[in-house]
Design a protein around this nucleic acid. Structure first.
Lengths: 187, 187
DNA sequence: ATGAATCGGATGTTCCGCTTCCGATAAGCG
DNA sequence: CGCTTATCGGAAGCGGAACATCCGATTCAT
């Protein structure tokens, strides 16, 4: 592959990540090409259609993330700590794209399998955190994963932003917690 | 107004709320008409364009909500309790529609003013809850409002669902809270 | 310097939703 | 019951947007 071709390909992927993050999966191909500083023809040379471009980004993202998550899980620290590491590592990734695959996509795509593996790993870690007593146990591990997705998938999320802080604090196994409606509340 | 016209109008509004809630503000007018059991011509007779339909729904929704919120705020209970009442009352409302107006919309619309009034009221209540000691004080009242919006605006939200529980618990002023990164965590 | 891979964007095609329009329908009234 | 008229329904025209193609121009690599 020629040097300029490789360079352009990388630019396109970068611009596409930004566009998909900001505008969702319907971001226009023309705009992506423009942001990448290449012609629309160049974009279509590298990726035969929109789906191929999305697939490239999604598969690459979730593949790296799965690798990182496994590395975190192998460390000799608490499972709660592992969850925090994962969240910290995930925010800013273009995870919102994965929603285009979520529920049993028709196509035989690598992305689906990777997502499943990731979710299974997360659920396992969450279960461990519950056994440690760090994570509240009145919520199923799978639901914990979904809540953390809310934190991680928002565009522009940061590891220390308010939503992350509040949700993680809400997930901790502290005493004195209750559910709506508000019979238990102060006042 | 003829009886069938009024009936059809109500059906259209109902179908539009559902469609906008499920598919966002780009839901197709044809589909709304079909779901309402009327022809597309009937829809456009009642609402000259998509914007008019959205405006009708949004203004009506937020007007009622503002009224309810003021009623809650007038009760002799804690401000935290008032927040819970508002959240409880809000989930299920088509609040996601309001995002189409949020940041200083160009048009001179009733919706913008109503949203501002609602936000101001919420911030005031949140501030009161902080003074009570029920709501954590390391978050600005305005940010509290934004977090609660996350709970209230999700399609299909329920007052006792997991995200609501966790965020509200995370907002409580309990001791032992901390922020990411995870230096403080157990383990 | 030369050949071939790559680039760029104008172009044509397709698709989809919006809106109009008018014949058909049926509600309301005398 | 029959007339008047508001309302209904959906076919068709319109407009725009995105996709994908194609080929002359460019630039890399040898």
């Amino acid at each position: 592959m020629r040097a300029d071709a490789r360079r352009n390909r990388a630019r396109i992927v970068g611009a596409a990540i930004e566009a998909f993050t900001e505008q969702g999966p319907t971001a226009s191909m023309e705009e992506i090409a423009r942001a990448a500083g290449v012609g629309i023809g160049t974009l279509y040379r590298h990726f035969p259609d929109r789906r191929a471009l999305m697939e490239e980004i999604a598969a690459d993202t979730v593949r790296r993330l799965l690798e990182a998550a496994r590395e975190f899980a192998a460390r000799p620290v608490s499972r709660w700590q592992v969850l925090l590491l994962i969240v910290e590592h995930s925010v800013g990734l273009p995870l919102a794209l994965l929603k285009s695959w979520s529920p049993a996509e028709d196509e035989r795509s690598e992305v689906c399998g990777l997502i499943s593996a990731l979710n299974a790993l997360y659920a396992e870690i969450a279960e461990g955190a519950q056994r440690e007593g760090a994570l509240r146990t009145d919520i199923a591990p799978q639901e914990v994963v979904e809540l953390l997705s809310v934190v991680m998938c928002r565009p522009g999320a940061r590891p220390d932003d308010t939503l992350a802080t509040v949700i993680l604090d809400g997930l901790r196994a502290d005493p004195g917690r209750g559910r709506l409606p508000a019979a238990d509340a102060a006042g």
